[in-house]
Computed example of a mutant assay.
Amino acid sequence: MGAGAAVSLRVSTDKDSGVAVVTLDRPDRLNAIDLGMVAELKKCWRELRFDDSVRAVVLTGAGGRAFCTGIDRDAVVPQPDSPYMQDDPLLTVGPKANDLWKPVVAAVEGMACGGAFYLLGEAEFVVAGTTATFFDPHTTYGMVSAYESVLMAQRMPFGEVARMVLMGTAERISARRAHDIGLVSELTQEGGALEAATACAAVIAGYPAEATQGTVRALWSAKEAARAQGFAQAPHLVSLGNLPADRQAGLFAARRRDGFRVR
């Protein structure tokens, strides 16, 4: 990060428990990911690979209103003028994308939507407060949900993923429903997700690191082939299906903030 650049990520480490808490810290932007945060996340995961005092990680968002709302719409991402090449900065924000195989537990309060699934899709499991909601707005704004759909298809029943990504902003999955379908492993009272996730991480961190990291690696080996195949199709589908940026912006500007149901 350049001199004077705002820091949008906080990392706190408890050497006694072996748990690091990584907090997305742009609450005024609902923890949307700008290019600065992309760089910070990559740096964070790479550094945690070398910190042997950290044996488990909790990932959460600041402010309580949102875990993360995906890519910041003000972020400018230049694209090659070719349907065969596409730059997606969110492909590099997750722990697995940065070769970190320490267990990661996500703690979700408030909204988790769109590009948030790049992060949730690379956590081992998710703990959520009762007011958490999950949705994918891509189709509403004329965009293909590609990477998000692939990642969530490995965490949720097919019909639930299909409904979420196709219904766009018209519906949000409640924390209770997310728990019922297996996306969320533990449901807490509002504001309790971080404490519960940290307690789980502390238990895991108390076990031999070689065993937990090997187990994480084994778990992910069962998913890698399907994910790689899905991701290979994503750039072409996005190039074919996305509306031009100005039309996306028009749909976004015309959005209704209260026009959804929670199920």
Rank of each mutant, 00 (worst) to 15 (best):
G182A: 13
A162C: 12
E195T: 15
M156Y: 11
P137C: 05
T215H: 08
A202F: 04
A162M: 11
Y141D: 00
R155D: 01
L183H: 03
A202W: 05
L219T: 09
H179N: 08
T130A: 10
M152E: 00
H179I: 00
E210Q: 15
W220V: 06
T139Y: 11
Q213C: 07
R217N: 01
A199G: 10
L151P: 00
T130H: 04
E171P: 06
A132I: 03
L166M: 07
P208G: 03
L166I: 08
A146Q: 10
T139E: 09
G192K: 01
A211M: 13
A205F: 02
M167A: 10
Q154F: 00
L183P: 06
A209S: 11
H179L: 09
T169P: 08
T139H: 11
G168D: 08
Y147G: 05
T131A: 00
Q154E: 06
G168W: 11
Q213Y: 02
V203R: 10
E210R: 14
R176T: 11
A218P: 09
R163A: 07
F135S: 07
T139Q: 10
G214P: 05
I173F: 10
E160V: 07
M156S: 10
P137W: 02
F134D: 01
P137Q: 06
S185W: 12
A178V: 04
C200W: 13
L187D: 03
G191M: 02
Q213A: 01
Q189C: 02
T133W: 00
S149T: 15
V216Y: 09
R176E: 10
L219E: 07
F135V: 05
E160N: 12
D136W: 12
L219F: 06
T188N: 00
S149D: 09
A199T: 13
L194W: 04
V184M: 05
L219V: 12
I173S: 02
M167S: 08
I204P: 00
G206C: 09
T212A: 03
E195F: 11
S145I: 04
G214Y: 09
P157M: 11
Q154C: 03
P157T: 14
Y207T: 14
Y207G: 10
A170Q: 14
G192T: 05
A193H: 00
M164G: 01
F135P: 05
A205S: 07
F135A: 03
I181G: 05
R155W: 01
Y141L: 08
E186N: 09
G214C: 04
R176F: 08
M167N: 11
